[in-house]
Design a protein around this nucleic acid. Sequence first.
DNA 1: ATTCAAAGGAAAAATATTTTCCTTAGCAAT
DNA 2: ATTGCTAAGGAAAATATTTTTCCTTTGAAT
Lengths: 133, 133
Amino acid sequence: MEKSVHYADLLKQKGLKSTPQRMAMLRIMETKGHADIDEIYQEIKKDFVSISLATVYKNINTLLDEGIIQEIKVPQKKSKFEIAKYKHSHFVCERCGEVYDVQRPKKLNIELPEGFEPREASVMVVGVCKRCH
Amino acid sequence: MEKSVHYADLLKQKGLKSTPQRMAMLRIMETKGHADIDEIYQEIKKDFVSISLATVYKNINTLLDEGIIQEIKVPQKKSKFEIAKYKHSHFVCERCGEVYDVQRPKKLNIELPEGFEPREASVMVVGVCKRCH
DNA sequence: ATTCAAAGGAAAAATATTTTCCTTAGCAAT
DNA sequence: ATTGCTAAGGAAAATATTTTTCCTTTGAAT
């Protein structure tokens, strides 16, 4: 199954139009894995010279609202966005800033006070990645 | 030991001046536990009617630089700031948005690919807090 | 009390994000 | 293929957020 078809269907399922700009944004996020607003904008401008930054923001928000993408808040830097997928955790390299997906811990032993109901947890590991070692 | 003395000394140790505005910001963060820029600004204006929002930002950055406070990036909402203390994790209530300190997991079982060196990890649990239950 | 750098305040600037308004284009129905 | 409706795009303005500038004030060492 081809990716562009996949995303086109996904968008339609959610009642969104499959526009070239949206498809490009999804492809960029898929290719980069994790990208911030500016990376997406710089990259998409290569194909859509006159695309508006407002369009990028509007699409990011729409895709977030529909759960097609997710925002990752990274310590000390700008948020990155990624295609929503199976649950996982993240590793951010303190040298180069690159964010990597890592498998999440099987069991998270956190003691919560009486009356606190956990629904989910996000784990961000900070360290040095392979390339920066 | 009185708190205000404590902070005054801490500031001096770091080569920072112990100004009334700074002390107030630290007290607010200590009292609230976790506060965002606007909460701090609204609160401090009660005592310093003409304080500038720029002063709040400048102090937040100075205190962050010296490691006296820490930024907590909360999913879907604005960053909160807290007095730096022993390592811990956070719980954020998806109903009221309140952030709570919780003890961090004793052992975090994350499988990292070959060549990735972890230095530390931050865990954010999302759920419903006692008061919102 | 004097001195001097650091910090505060006001305003402006820079940056980031959202909204408006009009045009364009997906896409469903024909 | 054509039509019509509405969502989406683009440009510009508006709003929000954060930083910088510039001048005055003040903490704290002497």
